[in-house]
């Protein structure tokens, strides 16, 4: 009986206390609005990174960075602000629309809001400093790859020939054309830009350097090789190394609807096959690498055959390749 009374008293006491707590909690609800106001004021004043602060961060990086250094802005949504402040000299298309980070020995990460680029996850942090709202980190690549030749540096009639290959193996040249490109209209999705400078093939299709928007909406400078059938790209006088590596992908709007279709990319040199990448639509921006020790140190033509059966995906296929 005594226990029951004690239990009842305890329960009432707990209920009474929780009731009081609830009452006070409810009474404090207007403070949610006040807290909301306080956070809002901070977010719209001191948290906003100004153009002058971006420029100050640029000056700090500019004093140290070399042309070979990669500069990354974090978070990714801040990229336009970084590009505006840093300009093409420090951060141009080749760095912004890189195939990957492997060729860079060092990177500067210019970060706000505590963001960090996942591309640098495996890199070694050398230093870090605060410049206003920025955290500027310097990172070293533990697995830097030395590039001997980059196909993207060879685009043009001087160092490259392009042909269409019919079923009988007959090659028809694709002529080099310089001019204004076709960077899309008002409709979105609009597909990749058709570059102004390109090889134009008979019967449609072209080969030219432009930027692919990958399935994660990141840019990659690459060589579009469009059109159905086989397009042969011959890059002259390439210095070979131990490896031929590269990436391939299709524009996001094609890539986001995976199909069974494949686009074949076959490399050869000195009349011998090097390797073959079978690109599956929907697989994203993917890398490939072929071992070429027998060609290491030699110079010769690198031949890439791009074969596609569908004009839709072929229109959006591009690749990049380099020797290492």
């Amino acid at each position: 009986m005594l226990d029951t009374c004690k239990r009842t008293y305890k329960l009432r006491h707990v209920l009474s206390r929780s009731g009081t707590l609830l009452a006070w909690t409810l009474s404090a609800v207007p403070l949610v609005g006040v807290a909301e106001l306080a956070v809002h004021i901070k977010q719209t004043t001191s948290d906003v990174v100004t153009e002058a602060q971006w420029n100050a961060a640029r000056d700090v990086v500019k004093a140290e960075a070399t042309d070979d250094d990669l500069i990354l802005f974090a978070p990714f949504w801040a990229d336009p602000l970084g590009r505006r402040a840093f300009g093409d000299t420090l951060s141009g298309i080749k760095k912004e629309a890189r195939a990957d980070e492997s060729r860079f020995a060092r990177a500067f990460e210019v970060s706000i809001r505590g963001a960090h680029r996942r591309e640098l996850a495996q890199w070694r942090k050398v230093s870090e400093r605060q410049v206003g709202p920025f955290t500027i980190g310097v990172y070293e690549n533990p697995a830097k790859k030395k590039i001997l030749a980059d196909v993207l540096d060879e685009v043009g009639p001087e160092r490259m020939t392009v042909t269409r290959v019919d079923a009988s193996g007959t090659e028809t040249p694709c002529g080099w054309q310089r001019g204004v490109g076709q960077p899309g209209g008002l409709a979105v999705p609009q597909g990749p830009a058709v570059p102004g400078d390109r090889f134009v093939c008979p019967g449609g299709g072209y080969v030219g350097a432009a930027i692919v928007d990958d399935d994660e909406h990141h840019p990659h400078l690459c060589l579009f090789a469009t059109g159905t059938g086989t397009t042969r790209i011959r890059v002259h006088n390439v210095t070979f190394g131990e490896f031929l590596a590269g990436h391939a992908g299709v524009q996001w709007m094609t890539d986001r609807s995976p199909t069974a279709e494949r686009i074949e990319l076959a490399f050869s040199a000195f009349d011998r096959p090097i390797g073959h990448h079978s690109h599956k639509v929907g697989s994203g921006w993917v890398s490939f690498e072929f071992s070429t020790p027998e060609f290491a140190g030699k110079r010769g033509d690198l031949v890439a055959n791009v074969t596609s059966s569908s004009s839709a995906s072929a229109r959006h296929f591009c690749f990049e390749a380099n020797t290492r």
Binding site: A97, G181, P183, A193, I211, V212
Partner: peptide, 10 residues
Amino acid sequence: NEVDYNIWTE
């Protein structure tokens, strides 16, 4: 984003 990149190309 593709519009951005297309403008870079052009």
